[in-house]
């Protein structure tokens, strides 16, 4: 049985799609057959981040409406044969998604895939609700600032009350915190909430801290999930996240400011 993971946040621009792409690639690289679905109908982005935008023929809404089969719509990743992408439709809106239709697609994917990543749109409307409704695990992506933390908290409330698991009285969704765009230097100066501050408000299991990094923007622009950039801090942080999710015990990194050696001081670091 597949594990359905929703990547959600409430707030926009915190790194949901970046995280979805990275986690999906990370799981697939570990040998697990993984599908990643873009729920952001009308504001399609995942295909850009995954670098497959020129291969989109059919999309999620076509499959829901029965205009295409799943097999036709799924795009196989060129870098990793275990990874498939189901893009969103750019010409439709979120009303094109129905609970029944989404449920059917997820059920069909579950037969073949080990992990299904649902990339949630921002907000708490239809698209976001349907992205999280069928989830088993939730990755709550949060930036270390008050509005993002507040929105994540709201999303957690919705996860606890409006998901299928909640409605059927089953075991609750496993909720994990992913703190993205973290800058230890700014935390030290008091300009940014610390990991402890966020944990104090959300009290969630911390799956990883992704440091603010130029490599994320570069990766997005080039259509390569940042996890493939193993040189970068962000790429390494995502590798850790995937490993932790799969049960490995990895110490948290990138929380403290890096101490630069003499060469680092002379030449500057990334």
């Amino acid at each position: 049985m597949a594990r359905i993971i929703v990547v959600t946040s409430g707030k926009g621009g915190v790194g949901k799609t970046t995280t979805s792409a990275a986690i999906a690639m990370g799981l697939a690289k570990k040998g697990h057959k993984t599908a990643v679905i873009d729920f952001d109908v009308g504001l399609r982005n995942l295909d850009l981040i995954m670098g497959c935008e020129r291969r989109v023929v059919y999309d999620f809404v076509n499959v829901i409406n029965g205009e295409a089969t799943l097999r036709q719509a799924l795009i196989k990743d060129k870098r990793c044969s275990q990874l498939y992408i189901l893009p969103a439709s750019q010409t439709r809106d979120k009303d094109a998604l129905t609970q029944e239709g989404v449920g059917k697609v997820l059920e069909e994917l579950s037969k073949e895939f080990k992990y299904i990543i649902c990339d949630s749109p921002a907000g708490i409307e239809r698209g976001a609700n349907l992205a999280m409704y069928f989830a088993d695990d939730a990755f709550v992506v949060t930036n270390p600032e008050v509005s993002s933390v507040r929105d994540s908290d709201r999303m957690l409330g919705i996860l606890a009350s409006k998901s299928r698991r909640a409605e059927e009285g089953k075991e609750a969704i496993n909720e994990y915190l992913l703190l993205t765009r973290y800058a230890p230097k700014r935390v030290k100066l008091g300009e940014m909430l610390s990991v402890e501050d966020v944990q104090d408000i959300l009290s969630l299991h911390l799956l990883g801290v992704i440091p603010e990094s130029e490599s994320v923007l570069n990766a997005s622009n080039s259509g390569t999930p940042v996890i493939l950039d193993e040189e970068s801090n962000a790429g390494q942080a995502y590798l850790d996240v995937v490993a932790r999710y799969l049960g490995e015990d990895k110490p948290h990194r990138f929380i403290e400011e890096e101490k630069k050696g003499i060469f680092g001081k002379l030449f500057g670091g990334k």
Binding site: R150, R154, G157, I158, A160, S161, S203
Partner: peptide, 20 residues
Amino acid sequence: RSGQRIYAKGDLIILSHVSA
């Protein structure tokens, strides 16, 4: 969590925090 509402007809006891 933020946005949740809890109502008790008697006493309400919460063993965790109440978010903004």
